[in-house]
């Protein structure tokens, strides 16, 4: 067991897979000699050489197209899109090419590839470098979508993503890069589509993702002080979505609160809420509450960005509303 940052866990996870499988390659802007603009790929170039760790021009379509063409002919590429906001300049390759090709070709083409991207706010970067866009990906049939909340999960889910035979979008939450946690020694591999119950309580179910997980846990701690016991589920993966774990918990608690960093409309919580409403309505004892950022681009100033993001206080308030 070693304590490491979420950022270092990214390099550890990539190295684990590159060591194991020579067909795994890494490409992206500044991923090689610079070790990534978030220092999440430090050391990989030295370890695996310039054939397998490749710096690219600022050409997001070319990066993802290269990943796709390589995946369809025998490699397992990991491509980096520096900031997830930049998906907007290469969304064709993601949503029209990578996502649709297996289906359109009636299964002739396999695309075992991973696209990693730094997602979300908290860094005071302003609206074009801060958005949480996992819901864009979730809306496209043919993409698997993963977002780890701990260093251990970074390694385990990255391994699962690389080994998965389908395209996976792997969202690294920017605000979590400095967060520390224990990662077991040796190989760590998870399964996609398994939520983790981070805390168990019988009064309400709080479902969160990535950077919202530690906040939900802090809110649960505060609520425990008032005698309210909350279950916190870390979704970990949006596609596949672990409906089983969420539904079972809602049946036990009768209350559902989602905590999402994305803007309000069509966030992943809306899908979770609609599934629970459709399938577990009679288990609910109160309204489903969604805690999200308001439906705005994210502002830059620390005071404004903090005010936009779901805070521990807003999560606590959301749980209380569901319990009323």
């Amino acid at each position: 067991m070693a304590e490491m940052t979420y950022r270092d866990a990214v390099a550890r996870g990539i190295a684990q897979e590159m060591d194991r499988d020579p067909s795994v390659v890494l490409l992206g802007e500044d991923v090689g000699s610079a070790g990534g603009v978030f220092k999440a790929t430090v050391g990989l170039l030295d370890r695996f050489g310039p054939g397998r760790v490749v710096d690219t021009p600022i050409s997001e379509q070319a990066i993802l197209g290269a990943a796709m063409g390589a995946a369809m002919t025998g490699l397992r590429p990991i491509a980096e899109i520096m900031f997830s906001d930049f998906f907007a300049v290469c969304w064709d390759i993601v949503a029209n090419e990578i996502a649709k090709t297996r289906y359109m070709t009636n299964g002739q083409v396999s695309l075992p590839l991973v696209i990693r991207s730094a997602n979300g706010g908290g860094a005071r970067f302003g609206a074009q470098h801060s958005q949480s866009v996992e819901n864009w990906a979730m809306a496209v049939p043919g993409l698997k979508v993963v977002a780890p909340s701990t260093p251990r999960d970074v390694v385990g889910l990255l391994a699962a993503a690389v080994r998965d035979p389908d395209p996976v979008l792997f969202f690294e939450q920017k605000s979590l890069y400095p967060a520390k946690g224990d990662v077991p020694d040796g190989e760590v591999v998870d399964e996609l589509g398994c939520a983790a119950v981070r805390r168990h309580g019988k009064d309400a179910t709080v479902v969160a993702l990535a950077a919202m997980v530690p906040r939900a846990l802090a809110a649960a701690e505060r609520l425990a002080g008032e005698g309210v016991e909350v279950t916190v589920i870390d979704l970990r993966s949006l596609v596949p979505l672990d409906v089983t774990t969420v539904s079972a918990s809602v049946t036990e608690t009768g209350h559902l609160v989602t905590v999402e960093e994305n803007p309000r409309l069509c966030g992943w919580g809306a899908e979770v809420a609609s599934i629970v409403a459709e399938e577990r309505l009679f288990d609910l004892d109160g309204p489903i509450v969604r805690v999200t950022t308001p439906h705005v681009p994210l502002p830059a100033a620390d005071a404004l960005e903090d005010a936009a993001m779901p805070t521990v206080a807003r999560i606590v308030e959301g749980v209380r509303r569901s319990l009323q």
Binding site: Q61, A62, L64, G65, A66, A67, M68, G69, A70, A71, M72, T73, G74, L75, P77, D92, I93, N96, E97
Partner: peptide
Amino acid sequence: GAHLTIANGAAWSA
């Protein structure tokens, strides 16, 4: 235009 970038990927792999 998209498939020119994908063709590159197959060539890179080769």
